[in-house]
């Protein structure tokens, strides 16, 4: 497990970055989901994988006699999952509204906030005209 999980985590991270860089909003969302899970897995591995007992202390003892699993990474992952889920929902809605308003999911053609300078536009139009 100690070797399989880091490899899985790395593969997921690599795939997610590929998806995120592909310039398509839909693929970006898939990449984001995968990246979130890769990071969760990373925290999980960083908290060490061990075969130990649940961190429950019997009522009559001050501390457990058996070695306990570290509960903190799981708590962190749980928080990260909840926050990540909320963000994901927001991203879905934002991208859908962006698609409705802008009419595209291709990030290359999303130039409304930073329009291409006017001279360039006329240049490309002229070039297209020549080409046709």
């Amino acid at each position: 497990m100690e070797t399989i999980l880091p490899l899985l985590c790395g593969t997921m991270a690599a795939a997610s970055i590929y998806l995120m860089l592909s310039g398509n909003l839909i693929r970006f969302i898939f990449g984001l989901v995968m990246a979130t899970n890769a990071v969760n897995l990373l925290i999980f591995i960083a908290g060490r994988i061990s075969i130990s007992h649940p961190p429950l202390i019997p009522e009559h003892l001050p501390v457990s006699e058996l070695p306990m699993a570290n509960a903190l990474p799981q708590a962190l992952i749980l928080t990260a999952i909840v926050i990540g889920f909320a963000l994901l929902t927001f991203v879905f809605i934002l991208f859908y509204r962006a698609y409705q308003t802008l009419g595209t999911v291709d990030t290359e053609s999303m130039r409304f906030a930073e329009p291409v300078e006017k001279e360039d536009v006329s240049d490309t139009k002229a070039m297209e005209g020549n080409g046709v």
């Binding site: 995120m20 970006f28 990071v39 991203v91 934002l94 509204r97 962006a98 999303m110 409304f112 906030a113």
Partner: peptide, 19 residues
């Protein structure tokens, strides 16, 4: 329109940075 465009880019990169 501008805001959706700017917003999408802002959200993308900032989410990646929190990750």
């Amino acid at each position: 329109k501008q805001q959706f465009d700017g917003g999408v880019k802002y959200v993308m990169i900032n989410l990646f940075s929190t990750l």
